[in-house]
């Protein structure tokens, strides 16, 4: 089965596994980004969390995509800690809730899930675009996803558009002065560094998109 068309719980779990693999692969890079303007734990935190998500999924797959995402959410909340844990956890939780008990996802569901995720992150963290946080990657990703969906894209195309925009969004944090999270303590000294959370968001969406192709 190519693409996410008609994608079910199993496919969503596969996509999450791809996300876990990319976090493991980029762990050192994320630590290094966080070392520069934070406390050098973002890669370690996310990797610990996604490894636990994969273990949880190995233990038995729930029946719906929403239920799979909910497992991911609660696992992230109880394993990641720091700022990223509650934020990513909330993102997955809100997406899960949005998807309800649908057994398969279409492009509209994917876009709506992403929108719910973003709303959750903003509700918890109160960051706006331009504050140099994961919102700078996620917000344009959601916009792009919705455009791709209304242009008739399939779920894979929606995710691909989100990934592209997220990457651009993450890059856009480099010249910014951080205003939320740990990097904000640096004031202008945060300028010139990519935000770790925005970078991990972009990496995750890229992995999701590639796995969904």
């Amino acid at each position: 089965m190519g693409g996410l068309m008609g994608c079910n719980a199993e496919r969503v779990a596969e996509v999450l596994r791809a996300g876990g693999a990319t976090v493991a692969e980029h762990k050192a890079e994320l630590i290094e980004l966080d070392r520069a303007i934070g406390d050098a734990d973002h890669g370690e935190n996310l990797d610990r969390g996604f490894a636990a998500v994969l273990t949880a999924l190995d233990g038995g797959l729930p029946e719906t995509p929403g239920a799979v995402l909910k497992v991911a959410a609660t696992t992230l909340i109880s394993k990641v800690g720091g700022a990223a844990g509650p934020l990513y956890g909330t993102a997955f939780l809100r997406a899960a809730t949005k998807l309800g008990d649908a057994s398969e996802l279409d492009a509209a569901a994917v876009a709506a899930g992403l929108r719910a995720a973003l709303d959750g992150v903003v509700a918890r963290g109160k960051a706006e675009v331009g504050d140099a946080t994961m919102v700078d990657a996620l917000a344009p990703a959601v916009d792009a996803a919705e455009r791709a969906q209304s242009d008739g894209g399939d779920p894979a195309a929606v995710l691909a558009a989100a990934a592209d925009a997220a990457k651009e969004g993450a890059d856009s944090t480099v010249p910014l002065t951080a205003r939320k999270g740990r990097a904000s303590y640096l004031g202008e000294r945060s300028v010139g560094h990519a935000d770790p959370g925005a970078t991990s968001t972009a990496l995750l969406l890229r992995a999701f998109a590639e796995s969904a192709r």
């Binding site: 050098a40 734990d41 935190n45 909340i77 109880s78 394993k79 800690g81 700022a83």
Partner: peptide
């Protein structure tokens, strides 16, 4: 106590 420099989780 959370992991080094990382807030503990809610549980």
């Amino acid at each position: 106590p959370g992991p080094v420099f990382t807030s503990p989780t809610p549980d």
